[in-house]
């Protein structure tokens, strides 16, 4: 079965894209307030970057959206679903995928199997057919394998298909993790520092992949990133968090001019000589 770049496999079986509305969420761990009254929206098809100093609550924000944390207050609406009250294993059915800051791949599985696990929600055969394999389960494997091969093609990881993930270089692991999220064929993808620890060349590759999946596949993207150059270049809008509060949101240019953001990043002028 040949895989053609001109096929558009992602157009079938994709769950509907919705606007994501984060409404006044607050999250605290004991006495620590990780997020305080944060609201923002993310339109279908846009790239929204979340930036902020370390400990600002960026990852907590993603964890709230994908159901790993449940905020004490507020709602996170995606279509008709309140994600703040949904277990994370239900999210892939709505078409929400994510990657992690410290790569959380299945280290003792091959790249191919990692990506095939991304297809998990699309595979419905029960355990009896799985035990028999030949016939139904095999057919389902092949159908999903075809989709996975498109992702492998897009991310240019053909040569490591059958290697154990644990043995791969860091940059490739990051790419495989993006691949696993893409294999799900999501409508919304959450990327937690997709370029951390990469060299310039790898960052350029990753930026290209993010733009490709956004423009070609039309996936809404929310990403956390520390590299300001990349953030300002590729995102449609930028949200800035500081100490768990949203201090600014808008296009890259607006955010760059926002006095609160400048204060957060460069420090406050206390009346000394500047």
């Amino acid at each position: 079965m040949r895989v053609s770049k001109f096929d558009r496999p992602y157009e079938s079986g994709r769950p509907e894209r919705h606007q994501l509305r984060v409404e006044n969420i607050s999250l605290s761990f004991g006495g620590v307030r990780a997020l305080t009254d944060v609201s923002l929206t993310c339109e279908p098809g846009e790239i929204l970057a979340i930036i902020g100093p370390n400990g600002a609550g960026k990852t907590s924000m993603l964890n709230c959206i994908c159901g790993l944390y449940h905020p004490q207050k507020g709602r996170i609406m995606y279509g008709n679903h309140n994600l703040a009250r949904t277990s994370s294993h239900h999210l892939p059915k709505m078409g929400i995928a994510r990657t992690f800051q410290n790569i959380e791949l299945f280290r003792h599985m091959t790249v191919l199997n990692n990506l095939m696990l991304g297809r998990h929600v699309h595979m419905k055969k029960n355990i009896l057919t799985a035990l028999l394999y030949w016939g139904w389960a095999e057919r389902e494997e092949i159908e999903n394998r075809r989709f996975v091969e498109h992702v492998i093609d897009l991310l240019e990881i053909q040569h490591i298909r059958k290697q154990m993930v644990g043995s791969l270089a860091y940059g490739l692991q990051k790419r495989v993790e993006l691949g696993r999220a893409l294999a799900m064929n999501p409508g919304l993808i959450l990327l937690d520092e997709p370029m951390a620890g990469m060299n310039v060349e790898e960052k350029e590759d990753m930026a290209r992949f993010i733009l490709d999946i956004n423009e070609e596949w039309g996936i809404t993207t929310i990403l956390i990133e520390h590299d300001m150059g990349v953030v300002m270049d590729i995102s449609d809008r930028v949200a800035v968090l500081e100490f768990g509060r949203l201090i600014g949101i808008g296009t890259p240019d607006e955010v760059r001019e926002n006095p609160d953001v400048i204060r957060a990043y460069l420090g406050q002028d206390h009346g000394g000589r500047s």
Binding site: A97, L105, R107, H108, M109, M116, H120, M123, R180
Partner: peptide, 21 residues
């Protein structure tokens, strides 16, 4: 099949498995 892969995924990284559905 996907069921066996899910088992291995739980062993290697249960949170990631949960997030992948």
């Amino acid at each position: 099949t996907h069921i066996g892969r899910a088992f291995v995924a739980i062993r290697d990284q249960d949170i990631a498995a949960e997030v992948m559905g």
